[in-house]
Amino acid sequence: MKVADLSQRDMAGLLTGKGLPIQIGPFWINLHSTIPDLLRHVTFFYAGYETTESARFFDFHITLKNAGGLRRWVKPQVHFLLDEYAPFKPLPYIHAFAMFEWGLNWCIATTAHRYLIIHAAVLEKAGRGVIMPGVPGSGKSTLCAAMALRGWRLLSDEMVLLDPATREITPVPRPVSLKNESIGIIRDFSATAEIGPAAEDTAKGTVAHLKPSETSIRLARATSRPHAIVFPKYQADSRTRLTEKAKNSALLEIQENAFNTHILGKVGFESATSLINGCPVFSLEYSQLEEALPIMERLVADSEVPA
């Protein structure tokens, strides 16, 4: 049963009542919220996700609610609760849906230690996964959104869940978070891009989300094998250039970009090492999406990629 199978009324009833179950990749969340913005966010972005009517175990019980008292009227705020625990300070009301997405990232990054969790986008074409780590401003999300709009399967725009034993990546497809200029770039890039409303003046500037393709959501339970690692770097006016990257520095960067190496210890280090040793690693400098995309296509088309 999909979230879309629920009437708007039932969905609102669940969100304000016993909770709306949503399966997001390998996780089940039970979402509570009294905030109309969040109902719209869920209706728009999560319609294609699985829900259930039967009682089950939930990985995360998440609540978004108004701050009480005077705060209900004066500069209203929203609280994020994991079960009853508030890991963050409240944010302005209009950032509710961004807070939900960030909060869920935090839940996963602090709990899902069965995976090495790397801060990176990951997409797949022809059964071949490409991992794109990137610091903020590297253009990782923009490139990720553009690839998702050109038929790549989105596994995640934020986190690679790498199984240390099988070396497979578990998808956790979610709305792609676009910041500031990227929002306009992606709108211009594709007339069919489904982008939600923007939250302005957040800690990360203006944030809006791009809806992943139906295929990406439908295949959320299908793991993927990493085929290449690309460190993107957006550089205004630069020529598009793909260069091989030294494995030792790539390993360091992967370790720095991982959320839980300090928890996984040796297992985490070994799985990062085997990931780096098992795929070619590149840097991609680009300023034009239309030039970067064919390069990414060639990476997964070319069977003679050097390992």
């Binding site: 089940w28 175990f57 990985d59 230690h113 069965r114």
Partner: peptide, 10 residues
Amino acid sequence: PEGPAHHLRA
């Protein structure tokens, strides 16, 4: 069950 087991191991 598998779900709780993941959380306990973590």
